[in-house]
Design a protein around this nucleic acid. Sequence first.
DNA 1: CGTCACTATGTTATCGATAACATCGAGGAG
DNA 2: CTCCTCGATGTTATCGATAACATAGTGACG
Lengths: 344, 344
Amino acid sequence: MQDVARAAGVSTITVSRVLRTPEKVKAATRARVVAAVRELGYVPDQGAGALSSRESRLVAALVSTLSGSIFASTVDGLAQSLREAGHQLLLGTTEYSSATEEALVATALSRRPDGIVLTSGDHTTAARSMLAGAGIPVVEVWELPEDPVDMAVGFSNQEAGRAMTRHLHATGRRRIGFVGGGRQAGRGGGRPAAGGGAADGDRRGRLRRRGYEAALAELGLGAPRVVPEPADGSMVERGARDLAALLECWPDTDAVFCSSDSAALGAVSEARRRGIAVPDRLAIAGFGDFEFAGELGLGLTTVSIPGRAIGAEAGRMLLARKSGEPVETPILDLGFTIVRRATA
Amino acid sequence: MQDVARAAGVSTITVSRVLRTPEKVKAATRARVVAAVRELGYVPDQGAGALSSRESRLVAALVSTLSGSIFASTVDGLAQSLREAGHQLLLGTTEYSSATEEALVATALSRRPDGIVLTSGDHTTAARSMLAGAGIPVVEVWELPEDPVDMAVGFSNQEAGRAMTRHLHATGRRRIGFVGGGRQAGRGGGRPAAGGGAADGDRRGRLRRRGYEAALAELGLGAPRVVPEPADGSMVERGARDLAALLECWPDTDAVFCSSDSAALGAVSEARRRGIAVPDRLAIAGFGDFEFAGELGLGLTTVSIPGRAIGAEAGRMLLARKSGEPVETPILDLGFTIVRRATA
DNA sequence: CGTCACTATGTTATCGATAACATCGAGGAG
DNA sequence: CTCCTCGATGTTATCGATAACATAGTGACG
């Protein structure tokens, strides 16, 4: 910056002003500075700027994983909305461990971000207190927690489970099972059940299941039909094996709600192999509306989540809060949509 | 840090040493400092540290998008390998525009990262010169560029196209078409063809197509069969429509190589609708090995790319270079695998 | 018992920017 | 003509850490 100042015949503060508040500098001076910046290829050091101005223009996001198409579009939406507002995204992956999350919260805070986005609803006590103590806006996304740290954007997994179960009931099904709860296996050869904490895909799946059970009770459909020991392997494989196990226990099952589209894919495949007509004899519903679920793919009836919008909205809320604007709805339910296709 | 130092009865530099080089501090002193850190909930400011030590422990990654399952696992692998080495990831999405990429390179460099990862092979001249001038390691991932800025990890799209075409030939096909080149539509309602630059999904698809054409020539299979005007819409939709158009021009086509699994999904679906037996009358091959392509899903014959490994390796190379170790293979070809399943 | 080598800790300057206050000149009001 | 105000620019201190050098103990050895 000194070099630029010298080249333009001004002081450093003027260079700083040209870059941050151009309207406060006379046009002629500004032009000289801009020329010097360009000529020297000067790129300001935002780290130094942050130190001085106490504003980092950085937002941290902690997600469990990007693989498996769950959070990718949320992060994408977040990155885009931040970029448009001149902020940058610091990304950390927790690999489904809340111990890792705790460590990542600390490292994230060490960058003094202007805000932080979390995809997990449950945090260690230490993590919660660090977040609270940081004095920055926090947004939890996807699941709307009962006891949010600060703000939240997402939908209710439990309501989604309930709604889909009611949908199955509404289409005449009476013996409805649930497939694909339990652990979410890390993809790509990650450590199995890393970190010792409860896996967090688990928690979400459990919430969907709770909604399923609630609906069953409300509708008087009898006891839940859930495989007690979920299978190992990828979600798809588990969907297949869990359906097989479920049918063994309750052969007359006429519908299953799968905790994810991947599990539903496995279930559909298993049903096909067994010559079970879908949806005639067995309706299959998924969750997530992944790409392959669409009309041209499986034609899977599923729950669609506005993942990208969640990310974009999280960014917006964060920046609004930062700039002092009041945030009308700090707990924002973006809902979900039941997409009815061929399988249920 | 001053507060901590006071509480522990030492000077700030001792606190700094306890945090960065604990072995240089006597155990008793160290214990007092650690206690003070814990008690005060002190989280060091890495930004300030970076300014002083000229080492940010930050790596920037610029990807076109995270949606659509292409780069997500690569970023995931990168984030993980960086985390294990105590570094953090700064993420930017370029939305397939090299103009946006140029701007992002500048903002990324303004954080003084210790390295930078790019998923696009073509950069503007300005971007290239900024990268070169930054004096930090640069890794280009996925496509191996002809003229790399610094290092690269990935595979050859052209070779992949060539290999799959040869595979189709080896299984007896002689009238082979190509589906799904051209633009890659932005998902989630992004601006169509934003930024004015050539979309970069386009470039990669073109390379696969070039490989396809090369194989055709080598094998004496006649002129390429490619739809001149690719359809609009999502990749899946385009796969369906392009196949339809292709069959209209060349009804006797007995195999198609699709530029992505999404396109292949659409193609399979279109074939089914028309009652064309796959693979008996028409073989269909994809690219990417997305989750739904597997045994339990489509059973799609496709090209599998080690996306996560590419990211992890990029991180490793970056950090090796940073710490002065020589990097044996600055241009690392991780290859691809042809996965033979049911459709071809 | 003095000197040396070494360990443990402290002091000072610095990284690259910005906030806060200071200065300077030009033009307008009285 | 003087004083005042305001716009344009400069000076100095500061953000929170670390590098480099400085200094105080501490034990070994001749």
